[in-house]
Design a protein around this nucleic acid. Structure first.
Lengths: 335, 335
DNA sequence: GCGTGGCGTCGAAGCGCTTCGACGGAGGAA
DNA sequence: TTCCTCCGTCGAAGCGCTTCGACGCCACGC
């Protein structure tokens, strides 16, 4: 293994000079820097991560906690994860993957052993048992999602309440009077998953404000469940003309089911969704949707963490405003 | 931060004794061990990961490389990942997540900086550019998937060729004479992804052996694509009575499409699949399938790696034999 | 009784890097 | 010219842990 002293000897400088040339923490003359860089290249030097972590008390590793509970949509979660990894690399950090198998002990362990410098926590519940732990840790963290009481923590997410409102208001503007929300699987609400609840809040509040008649329907993530919900909706609410879907897995099956039941989209029924643009665009009938900006959320989560690691203060809450794109699935009511 | 010297003082022993009590690498009297453990508990001691890595040249971290290329089925990949993380924890290791953004440099970097002790590589291509790199690294690795030339490397996967054969043989046994394979998206074959190719090999070979007429149809991962393939199959092969599906995303949409086209499953058409049992069981018509044992593959990949880290030799190739479960989607031809 | 060999423990030497204080020299101010 | 400052570099002291060699002690065999 080639180490910093080898590079130093080869470049005719001291090890500390090599270190400073690498980190830029002290000025180094252009000429020296070039000799050092040449030596590094020639010898194929790579600083030893452990030694670096020990000496600098920085591991340059972030923990990413992905619970992967039932009912979540895995591809969407992975989009966040990829975005986190990619952005972390831009800041010269790596990402340690934690699932929830170990529970909260895993978080404490990686923090206390200094394996990671900071943590990103996904799938936050309204009353998440990890909150007190995160507050007590001596390392910064960012949550993707909003708990009921985010005091003292840093959170970022799409403003799901506003997203729910935006969908309803869009439908109201088009003249629809009876709307329904097809939501996440029931267990997601039972757990008190923040983002799902907030969509319901926004949806209901906006419907009330606009004087719409509204109803909420959790839905399992399977085509069969989608069919059942579609049938139930038609049976119980024959006047229904507007649907908001907040469940990636059933978006397409649900539209299929409606059409098989004789309802044209958007002719008889307007559909909006809260989902990644990529999905909304590739459904057979492209769906008017509020984008789920996973790439942006992941990126900004890492940026917030980097700021905190740098000692800067960051806002406790970052709510990304909903961005709605109109596509072929919505139309005026009497169209 | 509480360190090993604090524990040693508190327990009235030397730091090396604490270390040996923890690692078990030298005998320690029962009484001393208990005093040490009590001190650790009382002080809340956690060994510093960097210091440990530096002194022992073991980081206790594995790299998990997940390319996430287009056309792969993300939930299945995540099942592998979760299994890897869970198993790694059982061996007191953590998992660093690498995507392919960085390309091969990322692998080299984490290996050369001693950030990780070993690597697990997923989504292997037949002629994977990472192979020479893995051979040249000074750290052990295991690939999930088989390249064309696995010499000098360690690979593990389901025996996809045998899985393809098993599906065909099952259909042949039931009297079917014309069969089709609905496979992964085209780009997966274009890239030369090992497992997809092997299914085709097994499927074709077994069909030829049994004198069946067969055809292969790549299929994009969308319900729309599934419908198109279904229509095409009926048009071009009216005598078709057996279908093998190797594409998790279209399994259910495909069956739906067949039924909408007037074919009952399994009355008119028998369907088998290669997919996780969990999926096969929850389709509307439970599907006879060869299991994709992601949990077992992930677990065994880690076990292989641990053996290699322990200095033991391991077999170059581990092919898990296919395990078929009959469900409601297959029936004799003239049923 | 004395040699022998474990067992259990200790002390010290690193592992490879960062960082702090120090220092020589060049340049500017007075 | 002299003094001060700042730039660029060096040497040394750790960071917290593991591990190697050494050593005292006790039990055992002859």
């Amino acid at each position: 293994m080639v180490k910093i002293t080898d590079v130093a000897r080869h470049a005719g400088v001291s090890p500390s000079t090599v270190s400073y040339a690498l980190s830029g923490k002290r000025p180094i003359s252009e000429e020296t820097r070039q000799r050092v860089e040449a030596a590094i290249l020639e010898l194929g030097y790579r600083p030893h991560a452990g030694a670096r972590a020990l000496a600098s008390s920085r591991s340059n590793v972030l923990a990413l906690v992905i619970p992967l509970r039932t009912g979540i949509h895995v591809p969407v979660v992975m989009q966040f994860a990829v975005s986190v990894v990619t952005t972390a690399r831009r800041y010269d950090h790596d990402v340690l993957l934690l699932t929830q198998e170990e529970g909260e002990d895993g978080l404490r362990r990686v923090a206390d052993t200094a394996l990671v410098d900071a943590l990103i926590v996904m799938d936050v519940q309204l009353h998440d048992p990890r909150l007190p732990l995160l507050r007590s840790l001596d390392r910064p963290s960012v949550m993707i999602g909003f708990p009921a009481e985010p005091d003292g923590l840093t959170c970022i997410d799409l403003d799901f309440k506003a997203a729910g409102e935006a969908c309803v208001e869009h439908l109201a503007r088009l003249g629809h009077r009876v709307v329904a929300l097809v939501g996440s699987p029931p267990e997601v609400y039972v757990r008190g998953t923040a983002f799902a609840q907030r969509v319901v809040q926004g949806f209901t509040a906006a419907a009330d404000r606009s004087g719409l008649s509204s109803s909420v329907h959790p839905c399992e993530a399977s085509p069969g469940a989608a069919r059942l919900v579609a049938e139930q909706l038609l049976r119980e609410q024959p006047a229904l003309t507007g649907v908001v879907v907040h469940n990636e897995a059933v978006l397409e099956p649900l539209i299929d089911a409606f059409e098989q039941l004789g309802l044209r989209v958007p002719g008889d029924l307007s559909v909006t969704a809260i989902c990644p643009d990529e999905l909304a665009e590739t459904v057979r009938v492209p769906v008017t949707s509020v984008a789920l900006p996973s790439a942006e959320v992941g990126e900004r989560a890492v940026q917030l963490l980097m700021k905190k690691l740098g000692g800067s203060a960051v806002p406790e809450a970052t709510l990304l405003p909903p961005r709605m794109t109109e596509r072929a699935s919505t139309a005026p009511r009497n169209a």
